[in-house]
Nucleic acid binder design. Structure first.
Lengths: 332, 332
DNA sequence: GATGCGACTGTTAACGATAACAGTCGCGAG
DNA sequence: CTCGCGACTGTTATCGTTAACAGTCGCATC
């Protein structure tokens, strides 16, 4: 910057001003400076900018996994909502582990992010302490916690799963099994399981028939294995609801292998409305959730919180319930 | 840090040393300082660290799209390979646009990353200038350019597509159509199309029968529409090769709708070995590429370049060709 | 002709850490 | 007893930018 200033015959401060739109500087001077910048290929150092202006321009997003099409869509939503704001995203994958999340929170907070978006509501005590102590705007997504840290954009996974069980019951299925998540800390998977159990009670459909399998998002193979274990224990099963579309897809393929016709012999339902669910044969009934929209809204409300400059006590705090829809296709 | 130093009765420099493992400092002092840090909840400011130490700890990864399972896997590979190195990833999505890529390069370079991973080999002139001028280690992935900027981890998309056409020809298909990418700057899609055309010549299968559709990665719906347009123009088509599994899946569904039996009436092949390709009926033949491995290798070689401290002229430059495999399933 | 104001530019001191160098201290060797 | 060395700690300057404040200058106003 000093070099540019010298070449343009001004002070470094004037160069700094030329690079920002709001500063008062004459047209002629700015043009001259920008011309020099272009000529010498100067790239301003945002690190120094961050230090001096006390604004990092970073937003942290922590999601369980990158190779899950739901979360990938959410990341896309966040990314799109940040475009044009000058903010950049630091992405972290927690692998569904609260400890890994805590670690990521600790290391990313050193970068002095301006806000943070977290999937879920299960955090270690230290993670919660770090977050509240940092005093940044937070958006929790993909869940609807009773005790939110700050803003929320999500939905009740239990309610969403319950809705699917009611759909199955409405279609006349009575002996409904569930393929759950194998990871205890997958709170969304656990909530879906809870919703399944509650709905069984509501419809008087007897005790739960469930097996856990499939690391989230659940590989296709494990969905097939899980179906096998379910049928071994409850051979009279007439429907299976899987914690994710991937597991459901595996279950459906296992049905094909066993010569069972879906949904005549057994119904299969998934969760997430992955693109995959439109390509199975028969097409998969599933619960659609607004993956992209969750990210986009989270980003937008985080930005709103960052731009808010009134009394911190009266900052608007969004608690948004995104909708979910049972999509009845051919598999139920 | 000053506060911590005062509370521990040492200088700020000693606190700084206590936080790094290599510095010479007595066990007792370090323990005392760490205890104070824990007690007051001090979090070191990496921004200041960056400025003073001239190391950002950032790596930039620019990929075309986040909601493409191939690239998502690559991102996961990069992420995993960076774990434990103290490096963090800044992720950017170029939307398959060189201009957007240039913009992202310009803005992310301000963060003074230590290295950069780029998908593809088509960059604007300014982007190339920015990159070479910045003098960072670069890894180009997902392509195998003739004029690489630095390191490469990729494969020839043309060769991979050619292999699939040969597979189709081996199975006896003669009138092979191609569903290409609608985005001209999708170089990988274009390369696949080129491979298709070359293979047709090699096998003497006449002029190309191709339509473009489907924004990458190609939505399922557009694959179906593209199949319709292909059949309208070349009703005698006996095989269709799609630029991605998603488009192929849509094409297959369109076949079902039209009452065509795959592969008896028409064969369908995809590209990418998305999980979806194992769930179609019949299961989809596709070209498997090592998406995760590309990211992991790129990350590893970038780290190696960063850790290298010999003569810059003799730094090892990896140019890795990752394998691809034609996976023959039931659809061909 | 003084005054004030607006438009622009410069100066100085941070921002929060680390690099580089300069001690200090204890202890064993000569 | 002195010297030197190793182990540890402190001091000062610096990283590249911006905040805050202090000019300077021209021009309209009274």
């Amino acid at each position: 910057m000093q070099d540019v200033a010298r070449l343009a015959g001004v002070s470094a401060m004037t160069v700094s001003r030329a690079l920002r739109s709001d500063a008062s500087i004459s047209q002629a001077t700015r043009a001259r400076i920008l011309e020099v910048i272009e000529r010498v290929g100067y790239i301003p150092d945002q690190t120094a900018n961050m230090l001096a202006s006390r604004r990092s321009g970073f937003v942290v997003a922590l999601i369980p996994a990158l190779n899950n099409s739901n979360f990938a869509d959410t990341v896309r939503g966040i990314n799109d909502s940040l475009a044009g704001t000058g903010l950049q995203m630091i992405l972290g994958a927690t692998d569904y582990s609260p400890e890994r999340e805590e670690e990521l929170i600790a290391t990313t907070l050193r970068r002095r992010p301006e806000g943070i978006i977290l999937a879920g509501s299960k955090h270690t005590a230290r993670a919660r302490r770090l977050l509240t102590h940092a005093g940044l705007p937070i958006v929790q997504i993909w869940d609807f916690p009773d005790d939110p840290l700050d803003q929320v954009v999500g939905f009740s996974n239990a309610d969403a799963a319950r809705a699917m069980v009611h759909h199955l019951a409405d279609r006349g299925f009575r002996r409904i099994g569930f393929v759950g998540s194998s990871v205890p800390s997958d709170t969304r998977g656990f909530e879906r399981q809870r919703g399944y159990c509650e709905a069984l009670v509501e419809r008087g459909l007897g005790p739960p028939r469930l097996v856990n399998a499939a690391k989230p998002p659940g590989s296709i193979e494990q969905g097939g294995l899980a179906l096998g274990r379910l049928l071994e224990r409850w051979p009279d099963l007439d429907a299976v609801f899987c914690v994710s579309d991937l597991a459901a897809c595996g279950a459906m393929m296992e049905c094909h292998r066993r010569g069972m016709v879906v949904p005549r012999d057994i119904a299969i339902a998934g969760f997430g409305d992955f693109e995959i669910s439109r390509c199975t044969h028969p097409r998969m009934s599933t619960v659609a959730v607004e993956s992209y929209e969750i990210g986009a809204l989270a980003g937008r409300h985080l930005v709103a919180a960052l731009e808010y400059d009134g009394d911190p006590a009266t900052r608007p705090v969004a608690r948004i319930r995104t909708p979910f829809t049972v999509i009845a296709r051919e598999s139920t």
